[in-house]
Each structure stands twice: as C-alpha cells, then as structure tokens.
C-alpha cells in the first residue's frame, strides 16, 4: 500500500503519473499529513539530485489557494439548469479539488522552470503564491477551447427582499421573482 503510494509520488514528481492516479494521490495527500511530508521530502531529494539548487514549496501553498477560492464571492445570477443540492455539492467539491490539483501542478512547473532558468542567486528560496481573485482554474473535464462557466446561483427570496428594500433598481431590472414588502394590491384593468 505505502510502497505503491511512494511510487506514485515519485511518478508524480517525474510527471509520469496518469490523470486519475494523480487525482487519487492528491486526495490522499490532502487527507494524510504523512504522505504530504513524504511528497515534500521526495521533491527535495529530486531537486537535490538534479541540481545544486533547492527550492522549497511551502507546505500550506495548496491550503492558501484553497482559502482564497473559498473567499471568492458566489454569483447570484440565473442558473441555466436546475441541479440537485447533492450534485451541486459534489460538483463544487470536485472543482475545489481540481483547483488545488492545478495549483500544485503550477507550483511544480514554477519550481522546474526556476531550476532551469535561475543558475545564480540564493541557495534556499521559498516559493509562495496567492490565487488571483476571479481566476478560474480549468477543470480536467472541460473541453479545450471552452471557458468554464461561473458558478451561478439563483436569486433567493431573502436576497430579493433585501434588493428591493435597498433601491428601486429591481423595477427597472425586469426581475419578477421578488416579493413586494411595502403595499401590494390588485387593480382592475379597464
């Protein structure tokens, strides 16, 4: 079991691990501190073998990216297809996982490029990064050339009420979902 995991870590660092196996391994890394530290050690060894330079990726790199994604606002815009809450949760967790995987791979690429490009400078450097607000990480399932749609959520009743109480723009928006709070009646049309 551990032997296989060790091999997979090694293959991931060498860029030889397949997509599904990468996802499985990243899941394990996320949940298992031992494997996470092992990944760091393997990376350090790999770098030491290939070059004299040593770049350490901060262990909380993925976590920071994840936190930034969590803080991203959700967009209350009309949804194209209604989805079950369980499907939405599943999709969101997948997206988060893909985002973390993408950031880890970006970090690996950055380290690789730095090793190739930078032959001088400090012996020890720490690489850190922040997710760019609003940046969408492509999911592995997305089609090439297609942009991923933002996570649209339908306007809910409370939000509508608040928007209406805030100003008159709901009337000019053509939004028909809101419930009036002031005075409502039906009038007879002649």
């Amino acid at each position: 079991m551990y032997e296989e995991t060790n091999q997979n870590i090694s293959r991931l660092i060498d860029g030889e691990l397949g997509h599904d196996e990468t996802i499985d391994l990243l899941k394990k890394i996320q949940s298992d501190e031992v494997i996470k530290h092992k990944m760091c050690r393997y990376q350090a060894i790999s770098q030491a073998l290939k070059t004299d330079e040593f770049y350490q990726v901060r262990s909380d790199f993925s976590h920071k990216v994840f936190q930034e994604i969590q803080q991203e606002p959700a967009y209350f815009l009309p949804q194209l297809k209604p989805q079950q809450p369980s499907q939405v949760q599943d999709k969101q967790s997948k997206r988060k996982l893909f985002a973390v995987a993408a950031s880890t791979l970006v970090a690996a690429v950055l380290v690789g490029q730095s090793l190739r490009d930078d032959s001088s400078g400090n012996k020890y450097q720490t690489i850190t990064a922040m997710a760019v607000p609003g940046q969408q990480f492509p999911s592995s399932s997305s089609q090439p050339g297609k942009l991923k749609q933002p996570n649209h959520q339908p306007l809910n009743a409370e939000f509508n009420d608040y928007l209406q109480a805030h100003n008159s723009s709901v009337y000019t928006n053509g939004e028909v979902l809101f419930q009036p709070y002031a005075k409502v009646t039906a009038y007879g049309q002649k």
Binding site: Q71, E72, P73, A74, Y75, F76, L77, L155, N156, A157, E158, F159, Y162, L163, A165, H166
Partner: peptide, 29 residues
C-alpha cells in the same frame, strides 16, 4: 444597506442567504 433580523428556524433553506460574500452585478453583499 445594513439588515439585521432574527434567525428563523422555519425558513426554507433555499430562501436563506448563505453566509459569505455574494455578488450580483454591481451589488455585493
């Protein structure tokens, strides 16, 4: 606008605003 109201136990989950930052056009909440 700043709104404050008591949490209602009987409110349908779909009609509640989830905690956190939300955005619709120029409006942020």
């Amino acid at each position: 606008s700043v709104y404050l109201e008591s949490k209602k136990a009987d409110t349908a989950p779909d009609s509640r605003i989830p905690e956190g930052i939300h955005s619709v056009g120029a409006i942020n909440s």
